[in-house]
């Protein structure tokens, strides 16, 4: 499958009348791992929610594989959504189902595989995220990190062309987090998935990203785009501060 690219043009988004991000332009090529980064409250998650169609932008255009996503409805929208796998910040696993049932659910609805095959595919996804032994557990019986890994397994179970991950490594220990980074890289390299990761973990950005897009709250938009190495050497003081982990003068804006 040719992974669709994402192209965003003149996007303006926010909530109600409040504009959070304005004049957003970028494109993501097939098979790229791109991180969206920035400080707290800069609109990273907001941008992600617009990219996956949870919210309609105020204006602008989002193209997924050449199709206009903002104006899409009916079958076209369904088709575009089917190309996505999304992992939400809190995992968003269905609490009344076991981990395995959570992972099986999309396969049962959207594939024509038989029971045995569905079970195997789901179990292999759990093996990929290291949760094979926890298949029969309820999400509430797992730790926060495990829930996130289970959520990643569910997000990628249909082998989506584009995988969106909202803060995958937040709240995880460094070892688990590194394991997750390796998994993300492997999915991109071996399966050619396009992966968009919202994060503010510096270690993750360096480990996984081909490119990073940095947002800023005060600028209400993108202040830098480039490889992690380029961003680390960036001359913009706001970017430097982020990469050197320098606090601002006031506590609230760190």
């Amino acid at each position: 499958m040719i992974a669709p690219t994402i192209r965003v043009e003149n996007l303006r988004c926010g909530y109600g009348k409040r504009v959070l991000l304005d004049d957003i332009n970028f494109s993501i090529e097939a098979g790229e791992v791109v991180t969206i980064l920035g400080g707290s409250g800069c609109g990273k998650s907001t941008l992600l929610k617009h990219l996956i169609g949870l919210y309609k932008p105020m204006s602008g255009r989002i193209e997924i594989g050449g199709d206009d996503f903002v104006g899409a409805s009916g079958a076209l929208r369904e088709r575009i959504l089917r190309r996505f796998g999304v992992m939400y910040q809190s995992g968003a696993l269905f609490g009344s189902m076991t981990v395995l049932e959570n992972v099986r659910l999309p396969l049962e609805s959207f594939s024509d595989l038989d029971e045995k095959s569905i079970d195997l595919v789901a179990r292999l996804k759990l093996r990929q995220v290291g949760l094979e032994d926890f298949a029969a557990f309820l999400p509430s019986e797992l730790s926060g990190g495990m829930q996130k890994r289970a959520a990643i397994a569910r997000a990628m179970v249909l082998d989506p062309a584009i995988l969106f991950l909202d803060e995958p490594s937040a709240g995880l220990d460094p070892v688990t987090s590194a394991g997750l980074d390796a998994l993300i890289r492997r999915l991109a390299e071996i399966q050619g998935m396009t992966i968009v990761v919202v994060t503010h973990e510096l270690a993750s950005i360096a480990a996984i990203a081909d490119r990073a897009i940095m947002l800023d709250r005060d600028a209400q938009g993108i202040i830098a785009v480039g490889t992690p190495a380029e961003l680390a050497e960036h001359t913009d003081p706001r970017v430097r501060r982020f990469f050197l982990r320098e606090p601002e003068n006031h506590l609230t804006g760190s």
Partner: peptide, 24 residues
């Protein structure tokens, strides 16, 4: 993709020897 790999996995588990796969 992942589902294809699961099929190969299933074959391997049943004792089939799979040769000639592309490296990736």
């Amino acid at each position: 993709d992942g589902a294809g790999a699961a099929l190969l996995f299933d074959l391997h588990r049943q004792g089939a020897r799979i040769a000639g796969l592309r490296p990736e």
